[in-house]
């Protein structure tokens, strides 16, 4: 281990040494920018690299570059010494928001695409879950507030994405949509008036639609994560998202094409 900034810590074989020995290798390299703790600490320089024997399903080497690499190397050291299986390492409990969790995520990276791991947005998901639970509890306490079940309920009336008056009886566009310039969003956001308009349009949405469009389009969470946070089905969520987006588009259209 080398006490540089960031630190470098290695245990076991390097990738090249393992290859020279003719071991059938699996290599997993996880940038620290996928580890929630590193994101939260705004210190994402570095990576965790794990090397495993595919046939034995055991670690043969670990190499970590990062501010706390020296602390993190301890777990792979034990895993190599005692022949702990990669699957067991990937399944073992690691507290959320610790750098140690990075070892677990790196072990999972052997079999999963790192970009699909929850790591990157884990912190946000966790915070939103807390906020949602809070809203649910408050909803139960305060009878006047909207019951939280409206999140999963669809609105009773049929809401088309685009008003029927915009189509001919055969379903073609009557006044067709106009083309928006390439820089429309950027230009729009320059005006505080437009911003207020979008905020207003979002505020006007029914609770479920508002929750879904906020999490998906403003906060950029995955569909699956949103299902978990709001405890609604995928289909339900897509309908809510569809209706919400259609209304925001329509509000923008009215704003852009005012006479």
């Amino acid at each position: 281990m080398t006490l540089t900034d960031p630190q470098v810590a290695s245990v076991g074989l390097s990738e090249q040494e393992a290859r020279t020995k003719g071991i059938d290798l699996m290599v997993s390299k996880l940038p620290l920018s996928y580890v929630p703790r590193a994101l939260a600490a705004r210190e994402t320089r570095g990576f965790i690299k794990l090397i495993a024997d595919r046939r034995m399903n055991r670690l043969v080497g670990a190499h970590i570059l990062g501010t706390e690499a020296g602390e993190m190397i301890q777990e792979p050291t034990l895993a190599i010494t005692h022949g702990i299986k990669v699957d067991d390492l990937a399944a073992a409990f690691h507290p959320y928001l610790t750098l140690a969790e990075g070892i677990k995520l790196a072990a999972q990276t052997f079999t999963k695409d790192v970009k699909k791991l929850q790591g990157r947005s884990g912190l946000k998901t966790w915070i939103f879950s807390i906020l949602t639970n809070r809203a649910k509890t408050r909803g139960r306490r305060d009878k006047r507030s909207v019951p939280f079940s409206v999140l999963s309920g669809l609105d009773p009336e049929d809401e088309p994405a685009v008003h029927r008056s915009r189509f001919t009886s055969s379903g073609g566009w009557a006044p067709p949509p106009e083309r928006w310039d390439e820089d429309t969003p950027e230009r729009l956001l320059l005006g505080s008036e437009t911003r207020a308009l979008i905020d207003h349009a979002i505020a006007e949405l029914p609770a479920g639609q508002r929750a879904v469009i906020t999490l998906r389009d403003i906060e950029g969470l995955d569909l699956a994560e949103i299902c978990n946070i709001l405890e609604i089905s995928g289909t339900n969520q897509r309908v809510l998202l569809h209706r919400a987006r259609a209304k925001i588009r329509s509000a923008l259209e009215q704003h852009l094409h005012r006479p």
Partner: peptide
């Protein structure tokens, strides 16, 4: 573009 605009809020 609507979705992109929302993403920039």
């Amino acid at each position: 573009k609507t979705i992109r605009t929302l993403g920039e809020l």
